[in-house]
Design a protein around this nucleic acid. Structure first.
Length: 577
RNA sequence: GCGCCCGUAGCUCAGUCGGAUAGAGCAUCGGCCUUCUAAGCCGAGGGUCGCAGGUUCGAUUCCUGCCGGGCGCACCA
């Protein structure tokens, strides 16, 4: 379609003896109104100034050229002021969409944009200092869907979780757990000032008591805290993995910061940068010259006391990602980290990579509402609603779909009561219901001995009505929508698409019968008129076995697309509800 | 003070690399099941796209400045 337009453009340019510096890429879109045809393009208006002709004139030239060149594709090519081109596809050509879906099956919608490129998507990466909360859930759902999208676009995708199991937070965790541990043994201790107060710390401490009894009491505080820290980290990480498992999200790699440091990557990275004079010593600390790469100021990587900063680890970690052969790095971060982006971009460039090879998707805050009031959350105070609690309340499918319904950079109020109360008319059920309805249709058909035929074996003219074409048109836009969603890393487009497709399926389902009525008794007779004419007419339409077969075959393709779309979101496509 | 994100129907949000009459869900009101799943369908009402300028054939979309909300501006992570 687009290529047809391109060649037509060239024809017109040549035949009119026009020279222009650059030919724009023509764009086609689904028009907002059906009377404007199946597809439309504003390309005539776009090139008119370059041609030095009136848009309407250019459009007319293009229209006649296209009509002549692609007569088998277009029923009509219309021109509308101020210069739109509106195309009407020949009804017979729409069947090709259905054939394509049947032939490709679950790979319908897959593309080649990312072919041969390796990308690593890092997401969640919550510190193992407590359970995951709802905010992490949003990041998890987004990272998972983004990874799926990239995969359908042809990328080789690695899903990675970075474990911050080194540094100050771990020491604080150890101190907190050890304090609780001592309390279990009847000691009174002053709890660390910046310690973690959550009740889960008690749980971990009790588990530690179970594991080693009172043996830690005899050790020096330093060693005991280290042991506590390791135990707690391992415990909490297990819990995190478990929660993500329940949420249906898997990682290909759990990358430990401690292992990164143990392997010496941190020193190597800094040495590397020192050699380039991008890390320097000043005021007793080591600094990364990030201001050379548009960061507002230089950043400390090694403090006066000799400790490395978090940034130092991150620099090493991202360098290692490239070293492992990834062409581009994608990070899903909480929006409160946005100030961190320039310095990481600086790091990427400092190692000689392009800024574009590093991409951050920011996920805005999730505010949890209960009874219309905001629930204050803080990990330190231990007062927050865990992801697990939310999943238990509304289910993994609904939670994921909810998280993905909005663009990631807008704030999201997750109203628990609402999510629970609405669980029966939640959008996710609306989409899943469409899938289940078709499945049910097939079950009933099977029980009556009716087969769902291949799209190649049906009478194509039976699915060329206005309502069928409307549905097929929506199916045909799936691959383009999916690619756009992948390139922009915006899974919410998929949720909106699926809701539209489901709506069209439901409409069609209500308007047209697919299987013949079970008792072929007399029609109702006199009581007409209350119902809308068109609907009444449809109910009376004659259902031949061929028509049933054709519609079943079409339904099969709708079902495939819904299933494919839900799979991208990580949401299940049930056959029964 | 500086930087980033957001401001669209009563509510929650799509749409925005400039295009034709700005859309959906919820909520409100009125209809549709003795036949394939009513978790559904059909219809109605509801808008100065935060405000003011600018760019042009055309701006909700791009630019500037305000106003309002959120989040950052550590030798914390």
């Amino acid at each position: 379609m687009v290529t047809a337009l391109s060649t037509a453009l060239e024809h017109v340019r040549d035949s009119e003896n026009l020279t222009i510096p650059s030919m724009p890429e023509p764009t086609v879109e689904l028009p907002k109104q059906e009377k404007w045809g199946d597809l439309s393009s504003n390309v005539a208006m776009a090139v008119a100034p370059k041609f030095g002709r009136a848009p309407l004139k250019v459009a007319e030239l293009l229209a006649s050229t296209l009509k002549a060149d692609c007569d088998s594709l277009f029923e009509r090519v219309d021109v509308a002021p101020p210069g739109f081109l509106n195309f009407t596809i020949k009804p017979g050509r729409w069947i090709e969409v259905l054939s394509l879906i049947e032939d490709l099956g679950e790979s319908f919608g897959s593309g080649q944009v990312g072919k041969g490129k390796r990308v690593v998507v890092e997401f969640v990466s919550a510190n193992p200092t407590g359970p995951l909360h709802v905010g992490h859930g949003r990041g998890a759902a987004l990272g998972h869907a983004a990874s799926n999208l990239l995969q359908t676009a042809g990328y080789d995708v690695q899903r990675e979780y970075y474990i911050n199991d080194a540094g100050r937070q771990m020491r604080m965790l150890g101190a907190s757990v050890f304090a609780r541990y001592q309390e279990c043994h009847g000691r009174t201790v002053t709890f660390p000032e910046d310690g973690y107060h959550g009740t889960y710390i008690h749980t971990v401490a009790e588990a530690l008591v179970q594991e080693c009894g009172g043996t830690l009491l005899d050790l020096s505080a330093e060693v005991a805290e280290k042991r506590s820290s390791e135990f707690a980290c391992q415990r909490l990480l297990e819990r995190i993995k478990q929660d993500l498992g329940v949420f249906g999200i898997e990682f290909s790699e759990w990358y430990s910061e401690a292992s990164l440091i143990a392997a010496g990557h941190l020193e190597h990275s800094l040495d590397d940068l020192k050699a380039k004079d991008l890390v320097f010593f000043d005021e007793g600390a080591w600094w990364f010259r990030s201001s050379q790469f548009q960061d507002e100021k230089d950043r400390v990587v090694a403090k006066q006391n000799g400790d490395y900063t978090y940034l130092a680890s991150d620099i090493a970690y991202h360098r290692d990602k490239f070293a492992r052969g990834f062409d581009s790095l994608i990070n899903i971060w909480g929006a409160d980290h946005h100030g961190y982006i320039p310095r990481m971009e600086a790091a990427v460039q400092a190692f000689g990579y392009q800024k574009e090879q590093f991409r951050v998707v920011l996920v805005q805050m999730v505010s949890l509402l209960r009874d219309g009031r905001k629930v204050e959350m803080s990990k330190r105070s231990g007062e927050f609603v865990t992801l697990r609690e939310v999943i238990d309340e509304v289910g993994a499918d609904a939670a994921k779909f909810f998280f993905l319904m909005r663009r990631s950079d807008s704030h999201f109020d997750f109203d628990l009561e609402l999510a629970k109360r609405q669980s029966s008319d939640n959008p996710v059920y609306y989409v899943q219901y469409a899938h289940a309805r078709i499945a049910s249709l097939f079950r009933v058909a099977e029980s009556r001995g009716i087969q769902v035929p291949s799209i190649h074996d049906i009478d194509h003219t039976l699915v060329m009505g206005q309502d069928e074409i409307r549905l097929i048109k929506q199916l045909s836009s799936y691959p383009g929508m999916l690619e756009g969603s992948a390139v922009s890393l915006e899974p919410h487009r998929v949720t909106f698409y699926l809701q539209e497709l489901a709506a069209q399926l439901h409409t069609y389902y209500n308007k047209h019968r697919i299987l013949p009525p079970i008792d072929s008794g007399e029609a109702s007779g006199s009581s007409e008129s209350i119902v809308d004419d068109e609907v009444a007419h449809s109910h009376r339409e004659h259902l031949s076995p061929e028509l049933t077969a054709a519609r079943l075959a079409m339904m099969k393709q709708v079902q495939t697309v819904i299933r494919n779309g839900l799979a991208v979101l990580g949401v299940s496509a049930p056959d029964q509800m």
